[in-house]
């Protein structure tokens, strides 16, 4: 696909100047910004936010990319300064175990319980007789043998 000159993505809305960067870095930069939360407006990513801090942080992310840091290193860099709060994607850790695993554990548990119950209900319905039926059957058999 044809692409026009790639421009640094963010700085425009904060009113700063723009640098031409290569395409892959541009893509990385953009994806990173969507994963990071602005601490000022708090409900926008760094990519969307107009706050000054967001502008500073975008510049920092750009600098770190230019320095050749990997995505993980950049995220660790920001996490060391602003904590987990800046990460829209909660890190995998003990404190987030319930968050990440909770829905799936619950899913497995309910699925297992339900399947077991359906099987049992089915067995009871098709295979066994109720107490009344059993008693009647007994009576019938008894009379037959008399």
């Amino acid at each position: 696909m044809k692409r026009a000159t790639a421009w640094s993505f963010c700085l425009l809305f904060a009113g700063s100047t723009c640098l031409a960067v290569d395409e892959a870095a541009d893509e990385r930069y953009r994806n990173l910004l969507y994963e990071l939360r602005c601490l000022v407006c708090q409900n926008q990513s760094l990519a969307d936010s107009d706050a000054e801090l967001a502008g500073d942080l975008r510049r920092r992310v750009q600098d770190l990319i230019d320095q050749g840091m990997s995505d993980e290193e950049i995220i660790a860099h920001l996490q060391a300064r602003y904590g987990d709060f800046i990460l829209y994607r909660p890190p995998l850790a003990w404190r987030t175990a319930a968050l990440w695993a909770g829905p799936f554990v619950l899913l497995a548990l309910t699925a297992w319980l339900l399947l077991r119950r359906i099987r049992r209900g089915h067995a009871r319905a098709s295979g066994s007789l109720s107490d009344v039926e059993r008693k009647r059957l007994k009576d019938v058999l008894k009379r037959g043998s008399d």
Binding site: V40, E52, L53, R81, Y82, G83
Partner: peptide, 13 residues
């Protein structure tokens, strides 16, 4: 001037 130190300290407000 450019908020660089602020980032080092995790300043947001």
């Amino acid at each position: 001037e450019h908020g660089e130190v602020g980032i080092e300290l995790g300043v947001y407000k």
